[in-house]
Design a protein around this nucleic acid. Structure first.
Lengths: 223, 223
DNA sequence: ACCTGAACACCGTTCAAGT
DNA sequence: ACCTGAACACCGTTCAAGT
């Protein structure tokens, strides 16, 4: 619901793209603290145009993150089609983790924006959906233990993501190494005791963030 | 090296403590974006006093993080004394992860500050040291696989940390669950293929951040 | 030596005026 | 409809004046 409702005027659409491209490359180069002024300048538009397209700088960041995530989703769907059940899951995990490496702090912002931004929540839900498909196939093939959920796995690869963003340029291979450890944790033939608690699910998150207000905090009338 | 060099005047020392306490509780309550003005006010001092004690807001945050980390270090040392080799390691991991839960975004800031702040690097090195001791004992007891390093483990628990900060209040038990998965990854009796790459070590980090300049970027002469 | 708060610089956001 | 850039608000940081 929402997103591409009104077809936008031609030049407006073009400006929006330019802003996204400019922001993406600037964020990649120098991190999230680049000013909106510089972004607008690089895009060849005024500052006001940026805020016409995106309600705030955070929304701009969120839009880029969403684009990145949908890239991963496409890859994941392809793996669901052809990939072999036993390995496709881990190829998808590598895909996700690999994206962290390219965009530095971009994904760090997700943790915060997560809470508020509905578009990111939607993209996240799709990632979990694809991951769930890949996971179930791997489980039915007997390659992965049956008592874990997609969100279990998503949390598990956080360490690999950190390795990718912070240490890959120092020690190439840490990321693969972390993923190997994740593999070991998910191996089906473990004689380890069963996991405590219940498998976390998407609705746990949805439940925590009700539709909510359009983000503007209600102003308290000053006596 | 550094830290408590000069014994500080009595009132100055007291102001420093008040600032740390005020900042700690305010950060806990409303996150890192609380203004320095409000922190100084809560501490009962002027804004200037804050910047006399801490070169920047980030340094203030770092100082709090360091205090928290040394709390964990104390606990870890105690576990090295008496705790039994097979379980002490995981008790320490629970200790670390538990701290994330209490302080919300406080530890998120570490990932960034990490790079620059030497005091945090020092505290971090101590954590790795203690963890290394606990890990080695567990390995010699045959409870944990022998091919992992302390930093391997530190990265692995990142997922558990995220669970602790973001999901524990929704689904109590996720953190324990994640730690169980870490346990499975570290189990000695895995028949999994060996890990790729080499075990990451502390000197990998040290090597990446040379003593460095006092943080002020050299100004480029104009024209 | 240390404290204070007014002043400064910077950056995200808005909005009246333009096309 | 959309674009623009000057103006605004906010916040981290500095510094001259005080004790």
């Amino acid at each position: 619901m929402a997103a591409d409702d009104k077809p936008l005027r031609a030049d407006a659409e073009r400006n929006r793209r330019r802003l996204l491209d400019a922001a993406e490359s600037l964020f990649c180069e120098r991190g999230l603290e680049v000013g909106v002024g510089e972004i607008a300048q690089r895009a060849g538009v005024g500052r006001g145009t940026l805020f016409r397209n995106f309600p705030s700088k955070e929304h701009l960041i969120a839009a880029i993150v969403v684009e990145r995530m949908s890239g991963a989703i496409v890859r994941g769907r392809a793996l669901l089609e052809d990939g072999n059940p036993e390995t496709a899951l881990f190829e998808f995990l590598e895909e996700i983790v690999g994206r962290q490496q390219r965009d530095r702090a971009l994904f760090d912002a997700v943790a915060d924006t997560f809470l508020a931004n509905p578009e990111i929540r939607a993209a996240h839900a799709e990632v979990v959906g694809v991951l769930d498909g890949l996971l179930e196939r791997a489980q039915q093939a007997g390659a992965v233990r049956g008592d874990v959920s997609a969100m279990d796995v998503l949390m598990l690869i956080k360490g690999a993501c950190q390795a990718a963003t912070a240490f890959e340029h120092i020690d190439p291979g840490v990321t693969d190494r972390q993923l190997d450890l994740v593999r070991a944790a998910l191996a089906a033939h473990t004689t380890t005791q069963p996991l405590r608690g219940r498998a976390p699910t998407l609705s746990d998150i949805e439940h925590a963030f009700p539709p909510a207000v359009p983000s503007d905090p209600v102003e308290t009338a000053t006596a």
